[in-house]
Amino acid sequence: MTKNTDTKTLREGSKAATLLEMLQRDDGATLEEMTTRTGWQSHSVRAAMTGLRKKDHVIEKRATGNTTAWFIGAAA
């Protein structure tokens, strides 16, 4: 069995792919938006973002007033 070398590939239609899609929006996504769309609890969304980071995605957060949004940032 061969291992997929593209670490950024996610199964199409999966919740992780949905999360990645949300993070790629220009305005990113709030934790509330991500939990609502995926049906996951907040700690599960944060764990999934950690998993995306381990797959070499750069995830940044931006606070505006009382709202924090996460988004895919520029690669280092």
Rank of each mutant, 00 (worst) to 15 (best):
K61G: 06
R25F: 12
R53L: 03
W40Q: 06
T2P: 09
T35Y: 03
R37S: 14
T5C: 05
T9D: 02
L10C: 05
R46M: 11
D26P: 15
G13H: 05
M49P: 04
G73N: 07
A74R: 11
G39I: 10
M34R: 03
V58G: 00
M34P: 00
G39N: 12
K54I: 03
E21Q: 09
K55F: 01
T50N: 12
D26N: 08
I72F: 06
T7I: 13
I59G: 03
R46A: 06
E12T: 14
E33M: 04
H43L: 06
K54T: 08
L52Q: 10
A63H: 04
H57A: 02
T64Q: 12
N4S: 11
T67M: 07
R53F: 03
R37H: 06
A75D: 12
L52I: 10
R25E: 09
Q24S: 15
H57I: 06
K61C: 04
K61P: 01
T68V: 15
D56I: 02
T9Q: 14
T2H: 03
E33C: 01
E21G: 13
V45D: 08
K8G: 15
R11L: 12
T68M: 00
Q24K: 15
R11K: 14
R62K: 13
K55R: 15
L19P: 12
A48F: 02
R11P: 02
E60W: 03
A69R: 15
V45Y: 06
K15G: 00
T18I: 08
R25T: 07
N66M: 05
M34N: 02
T2R: 08
T5M: 09
M1Y: 00
E12M: 08
T35Q: 13
A75W: 04
K3W: 02
L52E: 04
L23R: 07
I59H: 02
I72G: 01
K61Q: 15
S44E: 15
T67W: 01
D6I: 09
G28L: 09
V58N: 05
R62M: 06
N4I: 12
K54W: 04
G13N: 05
A17N: 12
I59S: 05
T38W: 09
A47E: 11
E33G: 00
T67Q: 10
W40P: 06
W70P: 01
Q41A: 07
S14D: 11
G13S: 06
T67I: 15
N4D: 15
G39A: 08
A63D: 06
T50H: 00
A29E: 07
A29F: 09
G51Y: 08
R62W: 04
M34C: 05
G51T: 11
